[in-house]
């Protein structure tokens, strides 16, 4: 049984990838609550590809492609056509839940047997290279937002979209690119979940992780570097829960650990005296 540190790091990967993607999208001013669906889609596509005999690496890239497509769909509906982003995300979660269950049944039948999949190769500390990349993203994004011109434009699209438009940029274009990025990362997060954590796919595999990633972004107050401690705390609580459960300890009900990440995010929201940190134009249509 791997140590609690390794488990924590591994469980952090899907959350970190999805949260990093969502952070970029929210900083650009859009809000996708359908990451749960995108992660689930990535998880399923990775399963389908590896189950068909391709390598786990191919499964991961397939999930990234599926995530890109999901991001493009969200951009089309919520950013270009200006449908309500929250309701689009809700519909997307339903669509992904239904489609992946549908696809899984076509592939695996109704046997109920668990189809074990080969894992992504481990590089270090029990992590695949996608896992290492996940830990690099907060740092890369910090530099992106604070030191690069595209990063500044993207951040401005979420704070003062009119000014960005006046500069001659298309706010919808910026947000659509952010949506593609966010989709790709969420898809990759789902693939890691299938290939390195659960080693199989089941209906509803993500079990709320996409929603948790949304909470982590809030908990981190939309700051890329803060994603690291926020995610490690959430993943650490989950790893501790696994350990206590395996040890048969019933001192602390395990529901407490399930609720802990959301409670932490809610507490972070309650303690902050204002929406400081949240992009000012979050969830508003592109001018």
């Amino acid at each position: 049984m791997p140590g609690i540190l390794e488990t924590t790091l591994l469980l952090s990967v899907p959350l970190l990838l999805a949260a990093a993607g969502e952070l970029v999208l929210e900083r650009s001013g859009s809000l996708q609550i359908g990451m749960e669906g995108t992660m689930l889609t990535g998880a399923f596509v990775a399963f389908a590809i590896v189950h068909a005999g391709k390598s786990p690496g191919a499964g991961l890239w397939g999930a990234v492609a599926a995530g890109l497509l999901s991001g493009a769909l969200f951009a089309l509906f919520a950013i270009v056509l200006r449908a309500d982003p929250i309701l689009t995300g809700t519909a997307w979660n339903l669509l992904a839940a239904g489609s992946t269950a549908f696809g899984y049944e076509l592939i695996a039948g109704k046997t109920g047997a668990v189809l074990e999949l080969p894992s992504l190769p481990v590089v270090v500390m029990g992590l695949p290279w996608a896992g290492l990349a996940a830990f690099a993203f907060p740092v890369i994004l910090h530099i992106f937002f604070s030191r690069t011109r595209p990063g500044l434009v993207l951040g401005a699209a979420g704070e003062t979209p009119m000014a960005v438009r006046a500069q001659g940029y298309s706010v919808a274009g910026v947000r659509s690119l952010a949506s593609l990025f966010s989709g790709a990362l969420s898809g990759a997060g789902g693939a890691v979940l299938t290939l390195s954590i659960s080693h199989t796919f089941v209906e509803g595999l993500t079990a709320g992780r996409g929603f948790l990633a949304l909470g982590i972004v809030v908990f981190a107050r939309w700051r890329p570097l803060a994603l690291l401690p926020a995610t490690l705390l959430v993943a650490g609580a989950t790893a501790l829960q696994y350990r206590l459960q395996a040890g048969g300890s019933t001192q602390i009900p395990y529901a407490v650990f399930i609720a802990l990440p959301s409670l932490l995010s809610l507490a972070a929201l309650a303690v902050a005296t204002s929406r400081r940190g949240a992009p000012k134009a979050l969830g508003t249509p592109a001018p």
């Binding site: 809000l31 609550i33 929603f211 949304l214 909470g215 809030v218 399930i258 409670l263 809610l266 969830g283």
Partner: peptide
């Protein structure tokens, strides 16, 4: 939106 989604998990 954010608080109710988190409360769903709770």
């Amino acid at each position: 939106v954010l608080s109710t989604i988190l409360l769903n998990l709770v």
